[in-house]
């Protein structure tokens, strides 16, 4: 690792001031992506601003229609939360499938979503449930948030405080994990709301997205077979040593069908 100055502020205001005052500062959440990146010398921030001691960034709050999770809440807490299991069990399940035990004990919701890795799990739920991100100075709708490969609507120094997930009638998440990294080669989150079905996809494209053609088919008929004949345009899908774009297109259909089957197995 290159050298850096380490800071551990106790408030959002102090964190933002430190970031603004740094030559090339970086927030440190759980560090499960950032630290390996630093160790490989793929980044060289002048300052690391650790958010672990910042008050007001953790916690889980469930109301009648939404689940709000603090950005520094760790995956293991979401996976184990009885409140979340009781309101959006698919979200707790998704968290239980991230990385491995040690990663889930450190990694955070905000860190994952701020980084927007194309294969991260949480973005599928953020966009699949139509979540709202609360940052230090505004709210951002999921649709406006994910923009391109590692590119989000976050401005320089903007900090996610919490994410609010609307509670669906039913939802399910299925992913095909890379056997080594446990990242989603493709992951699909399907949610049924009174207003219709939403689908969030991770792993397939440069960032999380909603496949309009899947949603249209499922809104006509909520059944795995409704996806059999939907044409998937994989032109812009990721292609790497793990999977070709065409294979990811196939996995997208397979994971979506399985997620719909899981959703239908739950009481309406």
């Amino acid at each position: 690792m290159y050298e850096f100055d380490y800071h551990h502020p106790d408030s959002v205001a102090a964190a933002i001031a430190l970031r603004a005052g740094a030559a090339d500062g970086s927030y440190l959440a759980g560090g499960m992506t950032l630290l390996p990146t630093l160790k490989q010398r793929l980044a060289s921030p002048s300052d690391l601003i650790d958010l672990a001691g910042v008050t007001g960034l953790t916690g889980i709050e469930v109301t009648a229609d939404r689940v709000t999770i603090g950005a520094m809440t760790r995956h293991a807490e979401v996976a184990a939360s009885e409140q979340i299991k009781g309101s959006i069990p698919a979200l707790a399940f998704l968290a239980s499938q991230i990385g491995d035990t040690q990663v889930r004990n450190r990694g955070t919701l905000g860190g994952s979503v701020a980084n927007s890795d194309p294969s991260a799990d949480y973005p599928a739920a953020v966009i699949g449930l139509g979540a709202t991100l609360q940052t230090d100075h505004r709210t951002i709708a999921a649709e406006d948030y994910f923009q391109d490969l590692f590119q989000t609507a976050l401005e320089e120094g903007e900090l996610i405080r919490s994410i609010a997930f609307p509670i669906p009638r039913r939802a399910a998440y299925r992913k095909f994990p890379n056997p080594a990294s446990r990242y989603a080669v493709v992951g699909v989150f399907v949610a049924q709301f009174a207003a219709g079905v939403r689908v969030g996809v991770t792993g397939a494209g440069p960032c999380a997205f909603r496949p309009a053609e899947f949603e249209a088919a499922l809104n006509q008929r909520l059944d795995p077979a409704a996806l059999d004949d939907v044409v998937i345009d994989h032109d812009r899908f990721n292609s790497d040593m793990h999977a070709s774009a065409e294979y990811r297109g196939n996995l997208l259909r397979v994971m979506a069908r399985r997620a719909v089957a899981d959703l239908l197995a739950q009481p309406a």
Partner: peptide, 8 residues
Amino acid sequence: AVKSCTIL
């Protein structure tokens, strides 16, 4: 449990 090589 945490991976001590991935924590400062």
